[in-house]
């Protein structure tokens, strides 16, 4: 599981410069897809798609994580990746706001935020939203493909 070692590399790269950290808010608006609550996995990869780490998991039952196929393939379903950053699934039409204290070095360094989504009895949607983490994208409403209407990343 090569991707699992990547976060360690990032840690060593970032920790010396860790002076700079800011609360970052992720505002997610769901579409009215007419189904049960959606599971959402928020995770970061580098530009080549190699997994760095997870930011948030909406949905508490590990049994369903394999339907978040991008996240599952990257992590092998290792739930330790989302310990302490897991909350409830998000209903259709609802709004989810997550505020995380993130390292500044995450921005403008070629990293990309992915949101995988899945709804019971409906299709799995890996990469429902893909947002390059750049200063230019901050505060922009980035459209989702299926269950996510939009995600806004703001500082």
């Amino acid at each position: 599981m090569k991707p699992l070692y990547a976060p360690l590399a990032l840690t060593t790269a970032l920790v010396p410069a860790m002076a700079a950290a800011t609360p970052v808010t992720f505002t997610t608006q769901m579409t009215n897809y007419g189904g049960d609550g959606a599971y959402l996995a928020y995770y970061v990869t580098d530009a080549s798609g190699a997994y760095l780490g997870s930011l948030w998991m909406a949905g508490g039952k590990a049994k369903y994580y394999q339907h978040l196929s991008g996240w599952y393939a990257a992590t092998g379903g290792n739930t330790a990746q989302v310990d302490g950053i897991t909350g409830a699934s998000v209903g259709a039409g609802r709004n989810l706001t997550i505020t995380l204290d993130l390292q500044d070095a995450l921005f403008d360094a070629g990293y990309v935020l992915h949101v995988d989504s899945s709804v019971e009895k409906m299709s799995d949607q890996p990469n429902d939203v893909v947002i390059p983490l750049t200063s230019a994208n901050l505060g922009q409403k980035m459209p989702g493909k299926r269950y996510v209407q939009s995600v806004t990343v703001s500082k």
Partner: peptide
Amino acid sequence: ASVFSLIPDGATDPAP
């Protein structure tokens, strides 16, 4: 029991 992961019945995923 399956929903609460009390049974080791998680679907296996083919290796990426």
